[in-house]
Design a binder for these strands. Sequence first.
DNA 1: CACCCGATTATCT
DNA 2: GATAATCGGGTGT
Length: 190
Amino acid sequence: MGREIIGKKLIRTLTDETELSGIIVEAEAYGGNRDPASHAFRGKTRRNAVLFGEAGHAYVYFTYGAHYCLNFVTSSKIGKASAVLIRAVEPVAGVDTMALSRRTTVLTQIANGPGKLTRAFEIDRTLNGIDVTLADSPIRVENGIPNVKVATSRRIGINVAAERKWRFYSADNLNVSRQPSRKMAIKRES
DNA sequence: CACCCGATTATCT
DNA sequence: GATAATCGGGTGT
């Protein structure tokens, strides 16, 4: 599930001197082999192989010819291929470095989207498959803010299984990405 | 090999 | 709100 990751801290180690971090404020759950919206729904391929492996590993994919997206494999069971897509982060440490990568100094615009946060945190396909539970991993997740109020909605940018409310976000945080479009709701009804 | 299209973003009207 | 940008994955011939 994606609810549990809201409020946790994402840490990206670049060098001994440079560490980026932020609080995860928005995520979406993808149900692997049982979810038509998941990359894993049609089975294992070279691109999505990581999803079919152990929980706690990063699945990073490239899309729209321009953007990387970061997921964490969540399945307790090998082959189930469920994961959470990290959609938005509130920057905490290394904000100046992030601002350079993102070409904006507006705090709420630096990492409020799945493609934006990978750019801000300098995450690309070379990090696909790494174990984020290890202390020396270039990407880690640690406990962040406890007792965050979490809201839910439909997932964004998908055309199937749109009725599932598997998007989770911090209810009182300005760094979340856009709301689901009305168009998707209409599409669902037709 | 040709074709389609996507878990997006920036920019324009 | 609408759309171009941009490219590689997946599918079918």
